[in-house]
Amino acid sequence: MPSSEFTLGANSYGKSGIRLVRVGRESPRHELRDLTVHTALSGDLDATHYTGDNAGVLPTDTQKNTVYALARDGIGTVEAFAERLARHFVDRVPSIGAARVRVEEHAWDRIGEHSFARGDGGERRTTEVVYDGRAATTTSGVRDLLLLNTTDSAFSGFLVDEYTTLPETDDRILATAVTATWDYGTAKPDFDRAFAAARGALMEAFADTYSLSLQQTLYAVGERILKAIPEVAEVRLSMPNRHHYLFDLGRFGLDNPGAVFQAGDLPYGLIEGTVRREAA
């Protein structure tokens, strides 16, 4: 039991990093789904914290096994699969009052009827479903979508003080790894269609925008996503600036007409923001 001095606050437990690959063999043209699933359960769990009584604890290993078992008959959209899992845990386990399930899908490119390839970009489609026994809310998005413009990007007119060394430029490489999320709430659109529309809008906005700052590009991306998926009220974006520095070839007696760059790693600029739809 809790002491008079301390008490338990918000808590959850679950299994993270459940790696699941499912092959659809219903036809000679196989389908491949590659997911990483994370579960988090909360509810009437005071006893296990205060006394070690585990009667209400569904083991995290059981949660892992449930992910594989429910994948047996198909995945569907990642949103639908996450909701199936969340409802399973809450509706079947009396001690569990809420479940949060996150799913990341790793993209593979088809190169044959049963052959696939994946690069090192790391792009993932993401979703998170929270179910409390009454309603399921869905947040979806994309993570680490690598984008790069070789021109049509500038950065000038910024604040200068005694520690500023960055030169202004009217032509630079703009590269980023976009992470974007948007909330559907309890709406149930065609999730695959909505994701494809949002991802396409994101890439089009990045390509179409003459960027005077990465912040300007972030806003343009968010605005375009909101236009593409009317069920969504806001988009949250994280866009690290993957710096590319023009390499000095002058010391070798060579010019560099904007052709050779050194790709930076750390540190990097990180631009984050939210773009909202105006309330009616």
Results as ranks from 00 to 15, higher is better:
residue 58 L to Y: 10
residue 231 E to M: 06
residue 159 L to G: 10
residue 237 L to W: 00
residue 4 S to C: 06
residue 176 T to C: 08
residue 160 V to E: 15
residue 247 F to W: 14
residue 154 A to S: 15
residue 184 Y to A: 05
residue 274 T to P: 06
residue 174 L to Y: 13
residue 153 S to A: 15
residue 167 P to W: 02
residue 166 L to R: 10
residue 197 A to P: 05
residue 110 R to W: 08
residue 210 Y to E: 15
residue 123 E to N: 04
residue 236 R to L: 09
residue 240 P to I: 01
residue 147 L to E: 01
residue 234 E to C: 00
residue 180 A to K: 03
residue 130 V to H: 09
residue 146 L to M: 07
residue 66 T to C: 12
residue 194 A to V: 01
residue 57 V to Y: 06
residue 237 L to F: 01
residue 39 T to C: 02
residue 98 A to M: 10
residue 41 L to Q: 11
residue 61 D to V: 05
residue 192 D to E: 11
residue 269 G to S: 08
residue 231 E to A: 08
residue 85 L to Q: 04
residue 121 G to T: 00
residue 149 N to M: 13
residue 252 F to Q: 03
residue 77 T to L: 08
residue 62 T to N: 11
residue 50 Y to G: 01
residue 103 V to E: 12
residue 13 Y to W: 06
residue 194 A to P: 07
residue 94 P to Q: 09
residue 261 F to H: 13
residue 180 A to V: 04
residue 189 P to G: 11
residue 252 F to T: 00
residue 239 M to G: 04
residue 8 L to D: 13
residue 34 D to V: 13
residue 92 R to L: 14
residue 64 K to Q: 03
residue 77 T to K: 04
residue 133 G to M: 05
residue 91 D to F: 03
residue 28 P to R: 00
residue 29 R to V: 07
residue 261 F to N: 09
residue 159 L to Q: 13
residue 189 P to V: 08
residue 19 R to D: 15
residue 98 A to H: 11
residue 223 E to V: 10
residue 112 G to N: 07
residue 243 H to Q: 12
residue 50 Y to V: 05
residue 61 D to K: 01
residue 277 R to M: 03
residue 260 V to S: 04
residue 143 R to A: 14
residue 25 R to E: 05
residue 185 G to N: 01
residue 104 E to D: 15
residue 48 T to N: 05
residue 55 A to Q: 13
residue 244 H to D: 05
residue 201 A to M: 12
residue 66 T to F: 08
residue 56 G to Q: 03
residue 140 S to Y: 13
residue 70 L to K: 03
residue 110 R to C: 02
residue 98 A to Q: 12
residue 254 L to H: 12
residue 236 R to E: 12
residue 96 I to A: 01
residue 74 G to V: 07
residue 54 N to E: 01
residue 236 R to V: 05
residue 232 V to S: 06
residue 158 F to Q: 14
residue 74 G to H: 09
residue 234 E to F: 06
residue 144 D to Q: 11
residue 174 L to V: 05
residue 132 D to R: 03
residue 134 R to Q: 15
residue 217 T to K: 08
residue 111 I to G: 10
residue 80 A to W: 09
residue 265 D to N: 15
residue 229 I to L: 08
residue 114 H to D: 15
residue 60 T to G: 03
residue 107 A to Q: 13
residue 259 A to G: 00
residue 190 D to W: 04
residue 10 A to N: 11
residue 252 F to D: 06
residue 129 V to M: 09
residue 55 A to W: 02
residue 111 I to V: 14
residue 98 A to D: 09
residue 280 A to R: 02
residue 209 T to P: 14
residue 17 G to V: 01
residue 139 T to W: 03
residue 17 G to N: 11
residue 232 V to G: 08
residue 79 E to S: 13
residue 212 L to E: 14
residue 178 V to D: 06
residue 164 T to Q: 02
residue 52 G to N: 04
residue 251 R to A: 08
residue 192 D to R: 04
residue 208 D to H: 07
residue 97 G to Y: 07
residue 227 K to P: 12
residue 188 K to R: 15
residue 220 A to V: 09
residue 238 S to W: 09
residue 34 D to C: 10
residue 58 L to T: 07
residue 106 H to V: 02
